[in-house]
């Protein structure tokens, strides 16, 4: 259950944003990609999930080439995305957002089972079930976005800055949840600016700057790295 990205080049029109990006995520592990604003993190997530087509390079999931495939087929292979800015359906209820998460699952019993799991993980969402997703607070919205991604029982989760714009207490909660999901054996690619948390959780991490991977290493190693300490941790 691993993801391998090889020499990925991605552009918007004539403006190239990702340059020869290569990395891998072993099955069951959590890999973090850290980078400042505009580094190309969202572009990377969108390319893996199929929303963008790369100029060149390869994306392999479980040794299948998924480069340039449309997003709905990538979802069916077991890759779920928690997009930047939550990406909820604001005029749908919380319940309907979750139903959309299970869009690729045909077996109603499996859907019911996942619903139960979601309600244990995020009790607040069952209280809000009939509310429009657009009326949720930032933290609730992020929980819903994660819950929605889980509804398809994914093998792999892509997180695009899940802590963005949330109060510190909620950030703690979100990282708790990500940890729980990792313990359940889901392979995770986590894109973050919240360096401390992302590196503590990560088995392995990469630093992305100006569209290139400039540094990589084990999470705890990178926390001690002088470049990182200086530019990202402000130490």
């Amino acid at each position: 259950m691993s993801l391998r990205v090889e020499e990925l080049n991605v552009a918007y029109g004539k403006v190239q944003v990702l340059w020869d990006v290569s990395f891998k995520v072993e099955g069951g592990s959590l890999v973090s990609i850290i980078g400042p604003n505009g580094a190309g993190k969202t572009t990377l997530i969108k390319t893996i999930s199929g929303l963008l087509r790369p100029l060149s390079g390869k994306i392999l999931f479980e040794d299948q080439d998924i480069t340039g495939r449309p997003p709905h087929t990538i979802k069916k292979l077991g890759i779920s995305t928690v997009p930047e800015g939550r990406g909820l359906f604001p005029n749908l209820t919380v319940k309907e957002n979750l139903i959309m998460g299970s869009y690729t699952i045909k077996d109603q019993q499996r859907i019911e089972k996942t619903f139960k799991f979601i309600h244990q993980l995020f009790p607040i969402l069952s209280e809000r079930e009939q509310q429009l997703a657009g009326s949720l607070s930032g933290g609730e919205a992020q929980m819903l976005s994660i819950a929605r991604a889980l509804m398809s029982e994914p093998k792999m989760l892509l997180f695009d800055e899940p802590s963005l714009g949330l109060a510190p207490m909620i950030v703690e909660k979100i990282f708790e949840v990500i940890k729980t999901l990792k313990q359940r054996g889901i392979t995770i690619l986590l894109v973050e600016q919240h360096v401390q948390h992302a590196l503590e959780l990560a088995d392995y991490a990469y630093i992305l700057e100006n569209g290139r991977i400039v540094l990589e290493g084990r999470g705890e190693e990178l926390l001690e790295n002088p470049h990182l300490k200086k530019h990202y941790l402000g130490l």
Binding site: S49, G50, L51, P70, P71, H72, K75, K76, S80, T81, P83, G87, L88, F89, P90, N91, L92, E96, I99, M100, G101, Y103, T104, R148, S152
Partner: peptide, 20 residues
């Protein structure tokens, strides 16, 4: 429901597995 989802957010609908 997927039609309404598509009206709300095309990219997210595609990410949910909707063949747009």
């Amino acid at each position: 429901i997927a039609m309404r989802a598509l009206a709300d957010n095309l990219d997210s609908a595609a990410l949910m597995g909707v063949n747009v």
